[in-house]
Design a protein around this nucleic acid. Structure first.
Lengths: 355, 355
DNA sequence: AAGCCTGTGGAAAGCGCTTTCCCATGCGGT
DNA sequence: ACCGCATGGGAAAGCGCTTTCCACAGGCTT
């Protein structure tokens, strides 16, 4: 005896409008409806049928089923974007650039925030892989954590074997296409500029040391100073967390520890804003007594008081280039590295060292 | 005669690791593997098998197929977030709040930027619908455009019939759960504050009039002034585009048109920053000659010079509440409206009117 | 000792779509 | 007039997963 089985598959079969209902209504086969409504698959469809199908879809209010499409095609129309923090203007700028490119390719963007946790980054990469994202842009910098690199490499490899592409901002020590911002050179230029202004007591308000970006920027400063015959003492480097309030606290600490400092190099603009605030609290004139340089040139840098001298990074362009790299080139395949130079923007927060 | 058909379905069948390969390797059925690796579906699985399956998945490097899961379950693990512009700090703050909630629910977030184009907003809503997003947060304000409302309502209805939920920030004239920021009241409070300080020539640097948010804020000012027996003349309102440079230009225009103005109310902080810049260029002292008030209280508002008096909106909280609204309540269903009050933050950019 | 749950495992029917193969046309070439 | 041969349309086999229904053990009741 054959018993009628009720829907083994799941799904609320509440008269959902599917391709087959459209086909039925238009009096054509499923195949034809598919060819008309979604990419034709290299096949032409007659005008009459074509019009009938469109009309039917319209009347029924048909909305295609993305997951089903992705399953059948074995590729979704989604790209992933992994950042440290969406509220950080550094990352929103990169995101804006990337999203422009995604739009041009008609792709949706999934954004994930890791809050600088390597584990979370890896987790999100895996989830994006599960979502069959076509490409993923790792916009946060890499971590200096040793175990991290190999696990990241493994994830990336798995992802690419699956047909996805990965782009990096900054070089994470793994083979993948990358955009390389000139952290080192930009930082070096800032340091040399300060030196030329006569500053000999230069301190650094540093970001989280676990970040590759921070290491690069710090190295740039170190090397520049060394090239000038000077040296960056450990006690002139205070670590903060890339936020304004972290920068303020660190600067206060710095001033206490080392009151003779005449120049502060903050490793991002947010912390530079905090440094400026701390200096104001401590009644130290900028730039008469202390010069301040930031990094990134966020839109708000020019509105700080005094207007912030900073190392400019074309962030939107970085996001754009990175995604282009993997979306617009066939996977034919040798990882590329595109350098993006940083430039020093001189404004009012720097001046000659006091004597 | 039966001919062997070669893979009618698509997909690179390159030894992809699927659930069934895991099951095979573990020596269990597909059903068991599914129950172990993905939600058990209310069913228990013995410990021995459970362990075997995990081990097999581990060894094979199994990554689940999200689209397939979404198809079978008729629901994805994605939420959508539609904003005007990701680089605008107003929206990044909302996004940050929303993403926190999404993370707590273990959901991925698809972000779309409309650049204030109603058509694009509708398009993205449709695409999110196609992606079978579980929920969508429309974080940009609504448009005053007449046709828009009914089309939006239709989209939302279709989306909800499909099992999705929609939340709005601001009331778009459609029935859906919404978080309602106190645009009107906050703006009114700012206007009254200026009035109390003795200002009688108050001008407004307005945002795009097509936005509901702008209409509300403007109305708040109008009503407050009317309540005080004054009136906001059309010539004292200049429209800009919510950017810093737009604010600057508009303020310059305003100053030319109406040199006697003693207070400027900018409808967001970005434009207030531009106003401050314009005033500086024109050598008008703030607040001695002209007072300035902004709106939103972005993190950078306190760093402007002088520190900006502004109407604070708890943006992260707004994003958080909005997504909570639809994710954490059963669809049992009467649209809720959660008001979120704005508060005036007095800083240094406002002072008594000059006499 | 017979009857029954209860707890576990498996078979298989879809979810909605893409795409391959095959078939019916209508057409021009020789 | 006959034979290809494009051309456009349809049938159907999956894509990888979830979930329903069934089967079968054991451990309990009565």
């Amino acid at each position: 005896m054959v018993k009628a089985r009720s829907r083994p598959g799941a799904a609320a079969t509440t008269g959902a409008v599917t391709l087959s209902s459209v086909a039925e209504r238009a009096g054509v086969s499923l195949a034809t409806a598919s060819r008309v409504l979604h990419g034709s698959g290299g096949r032409a469809v007659g005008d009459a049928l074509r019009a009938r199908v469109f009309a039917a879809a319209q009347q029924l209010g048909y909305v295609s089923n993305g997951p089903a499409q992705a399953l059948a095609r074995a590729s979704s129309s989604v790209v992933g974007l992994v950042v440290h923090d969406v509220a950080d203007p550094y990352f929103s700028a990169i995101a804006a650039g990337a999203m422009r490119v995604a739009r041009a390719h008609d792709l949706m963007v999934m954004v994930a925030a890791t809050f600088r946790d390597p584990e979370l980054e890896l987790e999100y990469l895996a989830r994006l892989r599960a979502q069959r994202a076509r490409a993923v842009l790792l916009a946060g910098s890499g971590f200096t954590d040793p175990g991290y690199t190999s696990r990241l490499a493994a994830q990336i490899e798995g992802f690419e074997r699956q047909g996805g592409r990965v782009a990096l901002v900054g070089q994470h020590g793994v083979p993948a296409d990358a955009v390389l911002p000139g952290h080192r050179e930009g930082a070096a230029e800032a340091a040399r500029y300060l030196w030329e202004l006569g500053h000999r007591r230069i301190a650094v308000v540093c970001g989280p040391r676990a970040l590759e970006t921070v290491a690069h920027r710090l190295d740039g400063i170190r090397e520049a100073l060394r090239g000038l015959g000077a040296d960056l003492a450990e006690r002139d480097v205070v670590e903060a967390d890339f936020t304004r309030s972290g920068g303020r606290t660190a600067t206060l600490e710095l001033l206490r520890r080392n009151p003779g400092v005449t120049a502060i190099l903050a490793l991002n603009d947010l912390m530079a804003a905090g440094a400026l605030a701390a200096l104001r609290e401590e009644r130290r004139a900028v730039p008469a007594e202390v010069s301040v340089i930031g990094f990134d040139d966020l839109p708000q840098a020019a509105d700080l008081h005094p207007a912030l001298t900073t190392v400019r990074l074309p962030l939107e362009e970085i996001g754009e280039r990175a995604l282009r790299l993997i979306l617009e080139e066939e996977p034919g395949y040798a990882p590329r590295a595109v350098p993006v130079p940083a430039t020093l923007v001189m404004r009012a927060s720097t001046g000659p060292a006091p004597r």
